[in-house]
Simulated scan of single mutants.
Amino acid sequence: MDKFKEKLAALRVEVDNATARADKAESEVKVLQDEQIQKDHEITSLKNRLTRAEEDLEKAENRIAEAKLNLDEGETTKTVGEGLARKVSLLETELDAAERNLRDTTEKLRQMDIKAEHFERKVVQLETDRDNYERKVEDLTTKYNGIKLELDETINSLNDM
Protein backbone atom coordinates (compact mmCIF):
# COMPACT_ATOMS: atom_id res chain seq x y z
CA MET A 1 0.00 0.00 0.00
CA ASP A 2 2.82 2.37 0.89
CA LYS A 3 4.61 1.55 -2.37
CA PHE A 4 1.47 2.35 -4.27
CA LYS A 5 1.15 5.70 -2.50
CA GLU A 6 4.80 6.43 -3.23
CA LYS A 7 4.32 5.57 -6.89
CA LEU A 8 1.21 7.74 -7.00
CA ALA A 9 3.11 10.61 -5.37
CA ALA A 10 5.96 10.13 -7.85
CA LEU A 11 3.51 10.22 -10.73
CA ARG A 12 1.97 13.39 -9.37
CA VAL A 13 5.42 14.96 -9.17
CA GLU A 14 6.07 13.91 -12.76
CA VAL A 15 2.76 15.40 -13.86
CA ASP A 16 3.55 18.62 -12.00
CA ASN A 17 6.99 18.75 -13.61
CA ALA A 18 5.53 18.13 -17.07
CA THR A 19 2.96 20.86 -16.50
CA ALA A 20 5.67 23.26 -15.38
CA ARG A 21 7.74 22.45 -18.47
CA ALA A 22 4.72 22.98 -20.70
CA ASP A 23 3.99 26.33 -19.03
CA LYS A 24 7.61 27.36 -19.48
CA ALA A 25 7.56 26.38 -23.15
CA GLU A 26 4.33 28.32 -23.68
CA SER A 27 5.84 31.41 -22.09
CA GLU A 28 8.93 31.05 -24.29
CA VAL A 29 6.72 30.78 -27.37
CA LYS A 30 4.88 33.93 -26.27
CA VAL A 31 8.18 35.78 -25.82
CA LEU A 32 9.30 34.67 -29.28
CA GLN A 33 6.00 35.74 -30.78
CA ASP A 34 6.35 39.13 -29.09
CA GLU A 35 9.87 39.45 -30.48
CA GLN A 36 8.60 38.49 -33.93
CA ILE A 37 5.90 41.18 -33.72
CA GLN A 38 8.53 43.69 -32.64
CA LYS A 39 10.74 42.69 -35.58
CA ASP A 40 7.74 43.00 -37.93
CA HIS A 41 7.16 46.54 -36.65
CA GLU A 42 10.84 47.29 -37.07
CA ILE A 43 10.76 45.97 -40.65
CA THR A 44 7.70 48.09 -41.42
CA SER A 45 9.44 51.13 -39.97
CA LEU A 46 12.56 50.43 -42.01
CA LYS A 47 10.49 49.96 -45.16
CA ASN A 48 8.83 53.32 -44.53
CA ARG A 49 12.20 54.95 -43.97
CA LEU A 50 13.50 53.31 -47.13
CA THR A 51 10.51 54.59 -49.10
CA ARG A 52 11.03 58.10 -47.76
CA ALA A 53 14.73 57.87 -48.53
CA GLU A 54 13.95 56.76 -52.08
CA GLU A 55 11.49 59.64 -52.44
CA ASP A 56 14.08 62.04 -51.06
CA LEU A 57 16.63 60.56 -53.42
CA GLU A 58 14.30 61.02 -56.36
CA LYS A 59 13.61 64.60 -55.33
CA ALA A 60 17.32 65.21 -54.95
CA GLU A 61 18.02 63.71 -58.34
CA ASN A 62 15.35 65.96 -59.85
CA ARG A 63 16.95 68.95 -58.20
CA ILE A 64 20.33 67.96 -59.56
CA ALA A 65 18.87 67.72 -63.06
CA GLU A 66 17.39 71.20 -62.68
CA ALA A 67 20.65 72.49 -61.31
CA LYS A 68 22.52 71.18 -64.35
CA LEU A 69 20.10 72.97 -66.65
CA ASN A 70 20.60 76.19 -64.75
CA LEU A 71 24.38 75.86 -64.54
CA ASP A 72 24.79 78.73 -67.01
CA GLU A 73 23.00 81.07 -64.61
CA GLY A 74 25.97 81.48 -62.43
CA GLU A 75 28.05 80.48 -59.51
CA THR A 76 25.15 80.36 -57.07
CA THR A 77 23.54 77.58 -59.05
CA LYS A 78 26.83 75.70 -59.00
CA THR A 79 26.89 75.94 -55.21
CA VAL A 80 23.30 74.67 -55.00
CA GLY A 81 24.21 71.77 -57.29
CA GLU A 82 27.13 70.82 -55.10
CA GLY A 83 24.90 70.94 -52.04
CA LEU A 84 22.36 68.75 -53.75
CA ALA A 85 25.08 66.35 -54.85
CA ARG A 86 26.22 66.08 -51.25
CA LYS A 87 22.62 65.43 -50.21
CA VAL A 88 22.30 62.74 -52.87
CA SER A 89 25.52 61.17 -51.71
CA LEU A 90 24.33 61.32 -48.13
CA LEU A 91 20.94 59.88 -49.11
CA GLU A 92 22.63 57.10 -51.07
CA THR A 93 24.73 56.30 -48.03
CA GLU A 94 21.63 56.28 -45.85
CA LEU A 95 19.85 54.12 -48.42
CA ASP A 96 22.71 51.63 -48.41
CA ALA A 97 22.65 51.55 -44.61
CA ALA A 98 18.87 51.12 -44.60
CA GLU A 99 19.12 48.28 -47.13
CA ARG A 100 21.79 46.54 -45.04
CA ASN A 101 19.68 47.02 -41.94
CA LEU A 102 16.65 45.62 -43.76
CA ARG A 103 18.62 42.56 -44.88
CA ASP A 104 19.90 42.01 -41.33
CA THR A 105 16.43 42.40 -39.88
CA THR A 106 14.97 40.05 -42.47
CA GLU A 107 17.61 37.46 -41.60
CA LYS A 108 16.90 37.87 -37.89
CA LEU A 109 13.18 37.50 -38.56
CA ARG A 110 13.83 34.31 -40.53
CA GLN A 111 15.90 32.96 -37.66
CA MET A 112 13.13 33.90 -35.20
CA ASP A 113 10.61 32.07 -37.40
CA ILE A 114 12.80 28.98 -37.29
CA LYS A 115 13.11 29.23 -33.52
CA ALA A 116 9.37 29.75 -33.14
CA GLU A 117 8.68 26.64 -35.22
CA HIS A 118 11.13 24.69 -33.09
CA PHE A 119 9.43 25.79 -29.89
CA GLU A 120 5.99 25.08 -31.33
CA ARG A 121 7.12 21.52 -32.03
CA LYS A 122 8.42 21.28 -28.48
CA VAL A 123 5.10 22.53 -27.12
CA VAL A 124 3.23 19.89 -29.12
CA GLN A 125 5.59 17.20 -27.86
CA LEU A 126 5.21 18.36 -24.25
CA GLU A 127 1.44 18.46 -24.57
CA THR A 128 1.50 14.89 -25.90
CA ASP A 129 3.69 13.83 -22.99
CA ARG A 130 1.33 15.56 -20.58
CA ASP A 131 -1.68 13.80 -22.09
CA ASN A 132 0.09 10.45 -21.79
CA TYR A 133 0.90 11.13 -18.14
CA GLU A 134 -2.68 12.15 -17.45
CA ARG A 135 -3.93 8.89 -18.97
CA LYS A 136 -1.45 6.93 -16.85
CA VAL A 137 -2.60 8.75 -13.72
CA GLU A 138 -6.24 8.03 -14.56
CA ASP A 139 -5.43 4.34 -15.13
CA LEU A 140 -3.53 4.14 -11.85
CA THR A 141 -6.35 5.92 -10.03
CA THR A 142 -8.87 3.46 -11.43
CA LYS A 143 -6.67 0.52 -10.41
CA TYR A 144 -6.18 2.07 -6.98
CA ASN A 145 -9.90 2.50 -6.45
CA GLY A 146 -10.53 -1.10 -7.61
CA ILE A 147 -7.88 -2.48 -5.26
CA LYS A 148 -9.18 -0.33 -2.43
CA LEU A 149 -12.71 -1.60 -3.03
CA GLU A 150 -11.44 -5.21 -3.02
CA LEU A 151 -9.52 -4.53 0.18
CA ASP A 152 -12.59 -3.02 1.83
CA GLU A 153 -14.67 -6.02 0.75
CA THR A 154 -12.03 -8.41 2.07
CA ILE A 155 -11.86 -6.54 5.38
CA ASN A 156 -15.65 -6.56 5.64
CA SER A 157 -15.80 -10.32 4.88
CA LEU A 158 -13.07 -10.96 7.48
CA ASN A 159 -14.99 -8.87 10.01
CA ASP A 160 -18.17 -10.80 9.24
CA MET A 161 -16.39 -14.10 9.98
Rank of each mutant, 00 (worst) to 15 (best):
E117S: 01
K108L: 06
K108S: 05
E94T: 10
V88E: 05
E138G: 08
E35M: 08
Q125S: 13
L46F: 01
K3T: 09
K7P: 01
A25S: 14
R130G: 08
L158S: 00
A98K: 03
L11N: 02
V29A: 02
S157P: 03
D96W: 02
V31Q: 10
E150D: 13
Y144I: 00
N145I: 05
A9F: 08
D72A: 09
E26C: 08
T79W: 03
K68T: 01
A53T: 11
E134L: 09
N156I: 14
K7Y: 03
T51W: 04
E58C: 08
E54H: 08
D139C: 15
T76I: 07
D139Y: 10
R52V: 02
I114E: 09
E82Y: 12
L95W: 07
I64W: 02
T51Y: 05
E153C: 02
F4I: 05
N156M: 15
D96Q: 03
K143T: 06
E66C: 05
L57P: 00
N17F: 07
T142R: 11
V29C: 04
Q38V: 06
S27T: 15
R12H: 14
V137I: 13
E28V: 06
A67F: 02
I37V: 14
L91N: 04
L69P: 04
V31Y: 06
Q125E: 11
R135L: 11
M1Y: 11
E28W: 03
L90E: 11
K78G: 08
D152Q: 07
E99F: 06
S89N: 05
M161Y: 13
E54T: 05
E107F: 13
E127V: 12
T77I: 01
A22Y: 12
Y133F: 13
K30F: 15
E120N: 03
E54W: 04
T105K: 12
E14D: 14
T128Q: 09
H118N: 08
K108Q: 08
I64C: 00
D139E: 08
A53P: 01
D139H: 14
R63E: 01
E153W: 14
K68S: 00
A18I: 10
L102G: 07
K87A: 01
Q36G: 11
T142K: 10
K24G: 09
A98T: 09
K68A: 00
L69T: 11
L69I: 07
Q111C: 08
E26K: 15
L91A: 02
T106G: 15
L140I: 10
L84A: 09
D152C: 02
K148D: 07
G83W: 03
G146D: 12
R52Q: 04
I114G: 09
L158E: 02
N159P: 01
T76V: 06
T128G: 06
K122Q: 10
H118D: 11
R130L: 15
D40S: 13
G74N: 01
V15D: 08
N145Y: 06
D131P: 10
R110K: 15
E150Y: 05
E120Y: 10
N17V: 07
R103D: 10
A116Q: 08
K3R: 09
V137C: 11
Q33W: 00
D34S: 13
R21S: 11
D2C: 04
E92G: 01
Y144R: 04
